[in-house]
Design a protein around this nucleic acid. Structure first.
Lengths: 351, 351
DNA sequence: AGGTAGTGTGGGAGCGCTCCCATCGGTGAT
DNA sequence: ATCACCGATGGGAGCGCTCCCACACTACCT
């Protein structure tokens, strides 16, 4: 009775069983072909593929997810309000890299914002339901509870930017330390001596590393670090403006500013102009990110470029490995799970 | 044997059955509570809810999707490359409205780009697998095959902007005709008489409606329509520039330009400046969209505001109704499935 | 008392897949 | 020949839900 269209009315979508009947093979064999198992003879495979094409068969994702206990989906979690997501080129670049790397995969990408408490609540529920096989976490602060929630739920995750030197989660980051060094070395090479630094948010590890790079570049070149030339910022324009005003009043003779982000540099530029300082004649300015702002600033801003798309791609690589490793009990490879990508200084007129 | 943790090892997530055992009721009853069915006594409901809380039960989405044949997910399909998505505030506003309306729902939103052929291919596959319960289609051109594919697959869909006056799919649009009218009437009221119009892409129905509004506003005010004052654009800045140059050479005495988008107006502004025309002294300028560009232009641009977030919300409303209607064979309501929202003219210094 | 609704509830029968074990020939070693 | 073995295959047993039918049990009418 299971010979001609097992499931009675052929109104709905074809099922595996129907394909099997059509191809004259068993259910298991069709499944093997669909999933690319090598243990199928060429003749059988061809027959099955023909049946699939004729019937226009498309696997039922829900059934597969239920039986195999996986979803073939991963989430890109942005712990910021949507506005920031659209405002900062960082995210769109990241998304592009991620999308590109995923495009020859069966994996589907979900974009999830977790800016408000409400959204975080929803996200927690979502993760608890294991609706994704893995998570990409971008822009995480030191005290964010999300990473812990993820490891508690045993959901594979990769973060962009470790939370500290002792980060346990796999991560992909750019070389913040080296990037900052290259900026300072560039300024030194151009004869600047009183180089100030406006930091990023201090609870972001990458910002700390940039400070370290700034310090070491000076020290290694035989200069002393003047703590009065370091002022805390927060990656925003307003913060850059405020910090610059502060620096100018404390060290009126500074001849260069290295800002922890392009947006911060934009603020610094404003404050410098107001104080009558010319860029780069009186004060050289260097930013970080090499975003569109840098190119369009007047004068164009020297900046440290991070390979953000590449970071997105590498994050996917790591995550997919992580997910694959968790399926059978494969020997957890000891490959580097912390990737650091090189930065590049893009010199323009501001320095 | 099904009394204490039916499914053996209690390592995994709790199942419905386990909750039922814990609460001392049957599987069906728990399902009813979870899904908010009214046919459960208060005492039983409380017992089940307690068990759910104690066990930290979260329904398995895949199982539910398989059994109930629905996914509780809808897709926002953007038939454009990602770059345009990030560049145009239209999309982020839309996304915000959609997200807001969805936030008190169980529905999950997927963002899908279908700019390239490759991506469209993927999307078709995705839709064929019925991985979403419904689709929101934004920014559709007249000859786009997507709407037809959707109705062929019998997937509920709502589009922003009908493809023609004979649109069959439910849609939400702003009043392009009225918006254009208000722009022209505003210019007339300010004494302008030689009002030019740079159109949008002619294969977009909304652009046609704006032309109609432009025409009728003039005619109804007793003026003749001078076809030489109408020039085709394509919503881009470059198009606006080109069209303006064309208009100026043809009708050097024009005293106002109504552009079909703010971006187009930006192009027009450029061309007008180059031709030595002052805004608004010599030529008044009005745009469409009231995007950030309008506010930041020099001089600030008068523009027709569309309630984009509201449009997003209404699209969700329509789509959810559409999906609900399709579940049991409810009498297809004859409610208005074509929603049109009012626009508002925002007057600024450019007119 | 007997009948008739109506509530609230339990649990069987799937939904369409994957996993895995049993089976079946065919091979090469003994 | 005999046996152990291996690749290819079929199909049973679930995965965790929803749907729906059947079954108390109560309450109300006649």
């Amino acid at each position: 009775m299971a010979s001609h269209g097992a499931r009675g009315r052929s109104g709905g979508r074809p099922t595996l069983e129907e394909v099997a009947a059509r191809a004259g093979v068993g259910r298991g064999t069709v499944s093997r072909v669909i999933n690319g198992s090598p243990r199928v003879s060429d003749a059988t495979r061809a027959a099955v593929e023909a049946a699939v094409a004729e019937l226009g068969y498309v696997p039922n994702t829900a059934a597969r997810a239920l039986a195999a206990n996986r979803t073939d989906a991963i989430a890109l979690v942005v712990p910021e309000p949507e506005t920031r997501f659209f405002a900062e080129p960082y995210f769109s670049d990241m998304l592009r890299g991620v999308g590109a790397e995923l495009s020859d995969t069966e994996m589907q990408l979900l974009l999830i914002f977790a800016g408000s408490d409400r959204e975080r609540q929803r996200l927690a529920q979502y993760l608890a339901a294991h609706r994704v096989d893995g998570v990409l976490l971008v822009s995480v602060h030191a005290d964010d509870p999300l990473p812990d929630l993820l490891s508690q739920l045993e959901i594979p995750a990769v973060i962009s930017g470790p939370r500290s030197a002792a980060e346990t989660l796999p991560s992909v980051d750019s070389d913040n330390y080296g990037g900052a060094r290259s900026a300072v070395e560039h300024l030194l090479a151009h004869g600047r001596r009183r180089i100030a630094h406006i930091t990023g948010r201090l609870d972001v590890y990458g910002a700390q590393r940039r400070i370290d790079g700034y310090r070491d570049a000076l020290t290694d070149a035989g200069h002393e670090v003047d703590e009065g030339l370091i002022e805390a910022g927060d990656f925003t324009e307003e913060g850059g403006r405020r910090a610059t005003a502060e620096l100018l009043s404390r060290r009126p003779d500074l001849d260069a500013v290295f800002a922890a982000s392009d947006v911060t540099a934009a603020g610094a530029r404003h404050a410098l102009r107001e104080a009558g300082r010319r860029i780069p004649d009186d004060v050289a300015l260097v930013g970080y990110d090499d975003s569109a702002i840098a190119r369009h600033m007047d004068p164009p801003l020297t900046s440290v470029r991070q390979p953000i798309q590449e970071m997105g791609r590498r994050m996917i690589d790591l995550l997919l490995t992580e997910i694959a490793d968790r399926r059978p009990a494969v020997s957890r490879g000891l490959e580097r799970r912390q990737v650091v990508l090189a930065t590049e200084l893009v010199a323009r007129a501001s320095s």
